[in-house]
């Protein structure tokens, strides 16, 4: 097995351990279909996100009411890829945005992004997100879908240390390691996914 393949295998194994969904894809086009497909299958935000069936205080409910249609947020995508996504969304009746995430703090259905690196040892995505919209897309989305090119997977955090430093030195910078979905065990140590961040993390491993 090539080292690229073995890193990709370790990465997949470790990411699945923390309940990330990992899918291999052959092209960016395939990624778009995957995104549209997931968005279609996913329950509407009002129901799923935050347990809209739960009664809440008035203020919290009002915020939730602000969101009506299914939204895909994809800031930070290359222009041509975003155009293709936008066209597909239109056909399916989804709203597609690449900016103004602050108007959607109740949540978006899908945040669609690229990762800069993957860390095989822990199944971690490294996402450099100095842009606020990109950052928010990875935080307020219910499903975070992230493309990780296989060639960008490294053994451990030490092996991307230099790349991290280069980015950090270009201040200001905001960078994230993302491993699995948002989680808590604060009540009786029972694991629950989707506290403040995404309920699901989908990683699309791109053959490159």
């Amino acid at each position: 097995m090539s080292s690229k393949e073995s890193l990709s295998q370790t990465f997949t194994e470790k990411a699945k351990l923390v309940s990330a969904f990992v899918t291999e894809i052959a092209s960016e086009e395939e990624a778009l279909s995957h995104v549209l497909d997931l968005c279609g299958k996913k329950e509407a935000c009002q129901l799923l996100v935050s347990g809209c069936e739960r009664d809440l205080s008035e203020k919290a409910e009002n915020l939730c009411d602000a969101k009506q249609s299914k939204i895909i947020a994809a800031p930070g995508l290359k222009k041509d890829l975003y155009k293709k996504l936008e066209a597909k969304c239109k056909k399916s009746g989804f709203e597609c945005i690449d900016s103004g995430l602050r108007d959607h703090l109740a949540g978006v259905d899908i945040g669609f992004t690229f990762a800069d690196y993957g860390i095989a040892e822990t199944g971690t995505l490294m996402i450099d997100c100095p842009s606020e919209d990109l950052r928010l897309a990875t935080m307020v989305s219910e499903y975070h879908i992230c493309i990780l090119p296989k060639s960008k997977i490294r053994k451990d955090s030490y092996s991307i240390e230099k790349m991290m430093l280069t980015r950090m030195n270009k201040t200001p910078d905001y960078m994230a390691y993302v491993t699995g979905a948002s989680r808590t065990a604060d009540i009786e140590r029972v694991l629950a996914l989707g506290v403040h961040g995404p309920l699901e993390l989908h990683i699309l491993l791109l053959e490159d």
Partner: peptide, 10 residues
């Protein structure tokens, strides 16, 4: 092995 998020702010 690692937490869900590690945030680096510079």
């Amino acid at each position: 092995a690692i937490t869900s998020y590690v945030t680096w702010i510079t």
